[in-house]
Design a protein around this nucleic acid. Sequence first.
DNA 1: ACCTGAACACCGTTCAAGT
DNA 2: ACCTGAACACCGTTCAAGT
Lengths: 229, 229
Amino acid sequence: VSPRAATKVDLSRDVVVERALEISDVEGIEAVTIRRLASEFGVTPMALYWHVKNKEELLDAMGDRIFEGFGAAAVSTTGPWHQQLRIIMATLIEALRVHPGALRVAARRVLSCEDGLIATEHTLKVLREAGFAVQSAADIARNLLQISTVMVEGNEGQYFTDTEEEREGLIQAKRAGIALLPIDRFPHVVEAADALTDCDDPEAYYGQGIDLFIAGVKALQPKATERAR
Amino acid sequence: VSPRAATKVDLSRDVVVERALEISDVEGIEAVTIRRLASEFGVTPMALYWHVKNKEELLDAMGDRIFEGFGAAAVSTTGPWHQQLRIIMATLIEALRVHPGALRVAARRVLSCEDGLIATEHTLKVLREAGFAVQSAADIARNLLQISTVMVEGNEGQYFTDTEEEREGLIQAKRAGIALLPIDRFPHVVEAADALTDCDDPEAYYGQGIDLFIAGVKALQPKATERAR
DNA sequence: ACCTGAACACCGTTCAAGT
DNA sequence: ACCTGAACACCGTTCAAGT
């Protein structure tokens, strides 16, 4: 019944990964350490090595967790190819936003986890059927993942700190630093100080990013005449 | 004249940053440590703190170095807006490719260093004159940087190791892992195993990425009728 | 099956002291 | 002005040992 007993659940791989994700979402991925986790579970650092091979495997497991359910969602899309691509991208962004601290580790796990593979398979299928060559389709699929990752990261995967106030402070400081630039040299930057740092309308931000990507892919689509090599 | 004397140049901020960039390009940014640098210079770790405030400042300086000359290059573009944007992006990618290990630290320094600000100012100017609203222009400028960064990173900013052979091995292992997937479940992924991992034609890869982005931005451009709010 | 203890080779950084 | 020495609070990980 002591405050420490509250955190003293039975250790397991899942519990460890879950806690690691919680930490990364608040304080960033660098705050996730074996020793930190151990102390939070009221256990010795070495105890974790029973449930996870090493730190790398822990990070991988965090990434895989993020993609859970993504495969099924990606496969269930319907409609014209560009609409399917749009839904896949929107779904991916949604999934990534849940754990902004673990984006990076997720991105490099796409081709190493079940759900990432399923989603990639379907994405490639859609692109191939739209007439894209193997290399083009692969590049576009990679781009889709990378752009989604970097958009989410740029928007909510920064400024990790211990407290919320501290986080606010960092953002304010950044914005103020831009707003105070010499306006004669950087008029457009100063004008866009808010727009460049913050995002009071994330949906619009992601919407434009998705629009841009889909429009770009559409423009790259080989014409039907070119397709018959 | 001893082998160790060869590395014993006079310590200075520039020399330290330069060496840090060299290390990050070969072994990745995590290989850059104060103690490692100190031992390479044949000096005590604390000696570095005279030339650089702390590790964060060192990383920032590495990022700023990457953008050196980028401002001037970005400003000197001419032609229609989308062509200027294209040149800016191509130039940025070129600059980023020089130091693939320090991409990440560079990206977050754009709005904090001279050359990054100059380039951003000009990019925003071009976009505003093309009719984009402040928020849209800002989002697109951010996207340009992020996409460029992530393309370079995805292509040559991975698999850092001590030796070149080890690096080759990692890439081969990754590709083999994909190629050996069950072909009935992941036919398109297996087909694209090479295309997804490697890039024997980087110019084509970056070219398509730039094409995609520019086409996407073009599609988002407000029509002249809409512009007169 | 699950965890501990002690130890090793690493980190960044402070602070006082040397030349 | 520039560097050293000793110390502190952190890392990940191995290996043998406990229950």
